[in-house]
Nucleic acid binder design. Structure first.
Length: 255
DNA sequence: ATGCCGCCCGTAGGGCGA
């Protein structure tokens, strides 16, 4: 089973890229973030035409998440039930008895900002939600854009980024608390000493200069670790014409 | 560096992302 996550930074702009990537890579599940389109504007038929079911949680202009799957999507959750959040950042569904939780986590802007407080509250809520989901679904995958680079190796210039948003000790502690629920960072688990980035700033030619951060992740519950075969970042789409600033992240589980 | 780039709304230029 091939699982993937990709922040496409507008599905309107990136639909062709998304379809191309699906056809070339044939994942069983693809989680999408930053759709930036309203619920009734989702291109369901374009995905159906190439064999993918879809569940989505859309929002005009900002946010928006979806799960695409070759197999049917069951027991769909829209947003975290306990958080009355107008921002559409979470969708969950069950595929082949595996719970898939797709998250577009809060950016936070800067450590000093009110948005950072929202990020903290949001991660507290995510922690509670995932804790409950794991009780109900021992085989769970939490994946998406976390907007946190959890380890020093996930950052191209530690000196520049330490104590900045995405890399601060506070954010790393929130990420660690999630993993302590019994979730394993699949790429870091298989490649602990390799630098793999998933996001490169559009400015200053950061992709060509290979200067990025690893902020998109696939966390798998401990029950699934024996099945984990591979984890990777596909940097190719970041080099396509008019790309998303994020690249797809993949994990392969044996069935 | 209040900069850089890109998307959104809307049709100029500010909000937002990371």
């Amino acid at each position: 089973m091939k699982i993937a996550t990709w922040n496409v930074n507008s599905l309107n702009v990136r639909l062709a890229h998304t379809l191309r990537w699906l056809e070339e890579n044939q994942p069983d599940v693809l989680a999408l973030q930053e759709l930036k389109l309203d619920q009734d504007k989702f291109p369901e038929s374009a995905f159906a035409d190439i064999g993918y079911n879809a569940a989505w949680n859309g929002q005009k202009t900002y946010n928006g998440v979806a799960i695409l799957s070759k197999e049917p999507l069951e027991n769909i959750d829209i947003n975290m039930p306990a958080l009355n959040d107008p921002q559409k950042r979470v969708i969950a569904a069950t595929v082949n008895n595996i719970r898939i939780i797709c998250s577009y986590c809060v950016n936070g802007e800067s450590i000093e900002s009110d948005k950072f407080k929202y990020k903290q509250q949001w991660f507290q809520e995510l922690h509670e939600y995932v804790k409950q989901q794991l009780l109900q679904y021992p085989a769970t995958i939490l994946l998406g854009d976390f907007n946190i680079a959890p380890n020093d190796i996930d950052v191209y210039d530690l000196q520049q980024w330490q104590n900045k948003v995405l890399c601060s000790p506070q954010e790393r502690s929130w990420f660690k608390q999630l993993t302590e629920l019994g979730l394993i960072d699949s790429l870091h688990y298989l490649h602990p000493n390799e630098a793999h980035y998933t996001w490169w700033d559009y400015r200053m030619n950061m992709f060509k200069r290979k200067l990025g951060l690893r902020i998109d992740h696939i966390l798998i519950s401990q029950t699934l670790v024996p099945q984990l075969q591979a984890a990777n970042v596909d940097t190719a789409p970041r080099g396509w014409e008019r790309p998303s600033d994020h690249a797809p992240v993949t994990a392969i589980l044996t069935s």
